[in-house]
């Protein structure tokens, strides 16, 4: 066990963690934020994407201890039900989600994608979301959502 101290959604979290504890388990089990999901065991699905110091990371590929001193942002930290993030709003308006399981990771990846490329083309969006699997939507409306989200974010 070791001490880890980091910020999650702006709040300081000091906890004892196992040396092998993955960041995703730390977020879900220790901090208790269950919006970040686990969809695979090979770092392929993107359900667990969070931002670590502003960069999107698959939280199942990183140990909690590696995030020592970092600022982690999860889906719970980007908007609220009263005031959705523009990307969350765009997913709602364009029916970019069905079962919702891939959605947190998808939205976090989309935000980073748009932060790097203010008005991405369809092909760039499809390429950029290649690390996030959605089984429900066929991606059609996710692509539309990200385009609309990019516009709302001021692209």
């Amino acid at each position: 066990m070791a001490e880890v101290s980091l910020k999650v959604n702006g709040k300081v979290e000091n906890h004892e963690v196992g040396e092998n504890t993955l960041l995703v388990d730390f977020i879900r089990e220790t901090v208790g934020l269950t919006g970040t999901h686990v969809g695979c065991d090979t770092s392929q699905c993107g359900a667990c994407v969070v931002h670590v110091d502003g960069v999107s990371v698959k939280a199942c590929t990183m140990l909690a201890m590696q995030a020592e001193g970092s600022e982690v942002t999860t889906i719970e930290g980007i908007g609220s039900s009263e005031k959705l993030h523009p990307m969350q709003e765009a997913f709602h308006e364009n029916h970019g989600l069905q079962c919702g399981f891939c959605t947190p990771g998808m939205v976090m990846s989309a935000i980073e994608l748009v932060s790097k490329n203010k008005s991405p083309s369809e092909a760039e969006i499809r390429d950029g979301l290649e690390g996030n699997i959605c089984r429900c939507t066929g991606y059609h409306n996710i692509v539309k959502s990200v385009q609309a989200g990019a516009e709302k974010m001021g692209g």
Binding site: L33, T34, G35, T36, T74, I75, E76, G79, S80, S81, L84, Q88, F91, H92, E93, H95, L97, C99, G100, F101, T103, P104, V107
Partner: peptide, 13 residues
């Protein structure tokens, strides 16, 4: 637009 979206979009599912 779907009623159920907000909870999923905010990680509250």
């Amino acid at each position: 637009k779907r009623k159920e979206d907000k909870k999923f979009l905010t990680g509250k599912g």
